[in-house]
Design a protein around this nucleic acid. Structure first.
Length: 238
DNA sequence: GTGTTCAGCTTTAGGCTCGC
DNA sequence: GCGAGCCTAAAGCTGAACAC
């Protein structure tokens, strides 16, 4: 900012047409400024001279100047200095955006290096989480494979048991079709006959033996033996 | 309170690269 | 070849921290 308290400052140059171009924090420059510092704060007449030449030719300052020029609003087709400023502005915008993303709901940091440190930390954290998710997904996929294999084994076992049952049913039908062939019930020993009625000697229970070679489930009610609805009433669990 | 130091930033200029 | 974009070094500004 131009120090107005310097009386020799304005005496050397006529800034009546340039004063609007001199950037001040609340002045015509509206571009983003990372810090709150004024963008032009010459304190000597030499500095002002350089700034004046800069303003006349829009960046074509006298070579050898190391002083800051003015920071007027510029467009992409203007001087290289203006383009460079626009580039810095874009960079600063992205830093602001990045800072806002890193800490939503809080005022973004103004320290660029701190923003980068936070960004690196967050990216690393997200990469770790992504790796954990991948590992978890792999183990779950493996578990799914195991369960599918177990399901297939159970299905095959069911088929095998079903075939075995049908085979036994067929044998039973064959035997029922030839009743005369079935031998009469043998004489049951008295002890077994008594046992069948729960009257074993000494009132002790003894196992009941059925007819040898004859499945006893044939005497079960037909509804209990019917397996035609097994696939509906008792679906496979796996 | 004042001077000094330092970190962080902007500004400028020069050079390089790339696309037209 | 030229313009635009990017990078870098140097200079300068600002605010905070610190010593006196």
């Amino acid at each position: 900012m131009v120090p107005p308290e310097n009386p020799s400052y304005w005496s050397h140059f006529d800034y009546s047409t340039l004063i609007d171009d001199i950037p001040v924090p609340d002045g015509p420059y509206t571009g983003f400024s990372w810090s709150t510092q004024p963008t032009n704060a010459p304190s000597t007449a030499v500095n002002v001279e350089i700034d004046n030449s800069f303003g006349d030719l829009d960046g074509l300052a006298e070579s050898g100047s190391k002083k800051r020029g003015r920071s007027e609003s510029c467009n992409p087709s203007s001087s290289k200095a203006c383009r460079e400023k626009l580039r810095r502005d874009r960079l600063n915008d992205k830093f602001m955006e990045l800072g806002a993303i890193l800490e939503p709901g809080r005022p973004p940091k103004t320290d660029k290096s701190a923003i980068l440190v936070d960004a690196v930390r967050m990216v690393t954290q997200l990469q770790d989480e992504a790796q954990k998710m991948k590992d978890s997904n792999s183990s779950l996929q493996e578990r799914i494979k195991e369960l599918k294999a177990e399901k297939n084994e159970l299905r095959e076992e069911k088929q095998r048991l079903k075939a075995e049952k049908e085979k036994l049913e067929q044998q039973l039908k064959t035997m029922n079709a030839q009743p005369s062939f079935m031998p009469p019930a043998p004489a049951i020993p008295a002890a077994f006959a008594a046992a069948a009625q729960g009257q074993a000697p000494g009132n002790k229970l003894v196992p009941f033996f059925g007819y040898p070679g004859v499945a006893m489930w044939q005497f079960m009610p037909p509804a209990a033996v019917d397996t035609s609805q097994d696939h509906v009433l008792r679906p496979p669990v796996a």
